[in-house]
Design a binder for these strands. Structure first.
Lengths: 255, 255
DNA sequence: TCAAAAGTGTTCGTCCTACACCCATGA
DNA sequence: TCATGGGTGTAGGACGAACACTTTTGA
């Protein structure tokens, strides 16, 4: 036998019309709280995550970066895919219209509306101060919301945020990503707060300091933080070169 | 403003015709080697991973379990999503026809062939002896191949396997999943080989033993392994109850 | 009786924890 | 001068790496 006799194109290509989008869960830290960027599509509806479809010549990462750029203005920041959400009924393009009966939200009948929409969940870490949230292309506005006061959201977006947070915590053990939430120059106490807020548990100051320095991936700068009403802490910077070297020699970032 | 003025359905629904499938990377261990199940669609072509489209009423996990069942006969085994592969040109339905010019592989012109196909990568851990590989619904056959002699595969399947292995290694730090590769009753030396093979590095016998027992998630059975030409090792079984208890009290599975 | 492999114990070093102590700063 | 927070030192304990020793088995 040379040809595969089992194969029949008509059985193989299952024609469920489908769109795949991305939903970045954008984290930042401000006022000692972990925050997530939530979008408002229409003020009368529940909030949702920023998101968008994957366009013709994009891969998923491209799309996530684009959505991030549209809503925060930021490029090339920490962004990582963590899970696909694919329940058959997780999303419907008619939801908004069914809720509000606004003519402009009515799915037109002359274009093919996909039966299903999957979304690829991403999480991103950004420095709060560098972001001026906008609604991007789809939404009216977006805003930071404390992780522990997230309201009920559209679709399965509450679930997506839960999974994003637990993926973020997992990732902390493999990559020292916390510094992405801080400005380029930061102090050890600041970094410690990041870890405490993400992991939601207190860490011992002196030991935290020593561990971070032992990793040898942060460069201590000459300067110290100005304008604090007590001893001025050193400033540090993430050092990519040292990081790459540390990775090669095999390091683990367990806390 | 009540209505979202930015919104226009015609801009929002981007009509790229798209299918999403799953590709489980099925791992097992035999003859002291880590193996992956590879499928042959047509003997004249490169091999590939088992796979299939996500059907109408399935989510991604359902589809992956179905493909696994079709190719191995197994149900409810360890299976975990790890990444979506979404490059615009990663897959084409015409590939096989372009290669072989066999009429039966020609995409019919009267049905809509999707422009793009994404795949969700899964990895699965199975006990070698319980599997009798078949081609499943799509392929002619499937067979176990050593992880370090994987040939060049169709599409981006080599990349998928690489990512699967590194995800498997990562996951070892969060879940003690190695036992899934063994029969229900196993010995500590057997478990140690599993870890050594997956991580591709030797571990110290006595320390490994102690660590596994300290985790307290394996139950030592009364019996010992029969038919070995030296001291007979104890048999153990993974104990779900103890595992759940250990998780609650906060355990980490660092090696 | 012996080789091989399994189980257990011991030593040593490293790292983590907790706490103490001193330093620098603005109020 | 004092309260506050940052940097560093140290004693004690937990744990891992390496290795030694004993036990059990089939050949």
């Amino acid at each position: 036998m040379t040809t595969n006799q089992k194969f029949n194109f008509r059985n193989y290509v299952k024609n469920t019309s489908l769109t795949v989008g991305v939903n970045p869960v954008i984290f930042s830290v401000s006022e000692d709280k972990l925050k997530v960027l939530l979008a408002t599509f229409d003020p009368r509806l529940k909030k949702s995550l920023p998101g968008g479809a994957i366009l013709k010549n994009e891969n998923a990462d491209d799309a996530a970066n684009r959505v991030l750029q549209e809503t925060t203005g930021l490029e090339s920041i920490f962004l990582k895919q963590f899970h696909v959400f694919s329940e058959p009924d997780r999303f419907s393009y008619a939801t908004v219209y069914n809720e509000l009966h606004e003519e402009s939200y009515k799915p037109p009948e002359d274009i093919d509306i996909p039966d299903r929409v999957f979304t690829i969940g991403y999480f991103a870490l950004v420095n709060f101060d560098t972001v001026h949230p906008t609604g991007g292309i789809i939404n009216v506005m977006s805003e930071w919301v404390d992780i522990d006061t997230i309201p009920e959201l559209m679709y399965d977006h509450n679930l997506i945020i839960d999974e994003a947070l637990s993926s973020l915590r997992k990732e902390l053990f493999f990559e020292p990503i916390g510094y992405n939430l801080l400005p380029e120059k930061f102090t050890m106490p600041e970094l410690q707060r990041i870890y405490e807020i993400i992991l939601d548990k207190p860490l011992t100051r002196s030991n935290f300091q020593r561990k971070m320095l032992n990793w040898g991936i942060y460069e201590r700068l000459g300067e110290r933080k100005e304008g604090v009403s007590h001893k001025r802490p050193f400033l540090y910077r993430f050092d990519k070169e040292r990081y790459d070297k540390a990775i090669k020699t095999g390091i683990n970032f367990c806390l």
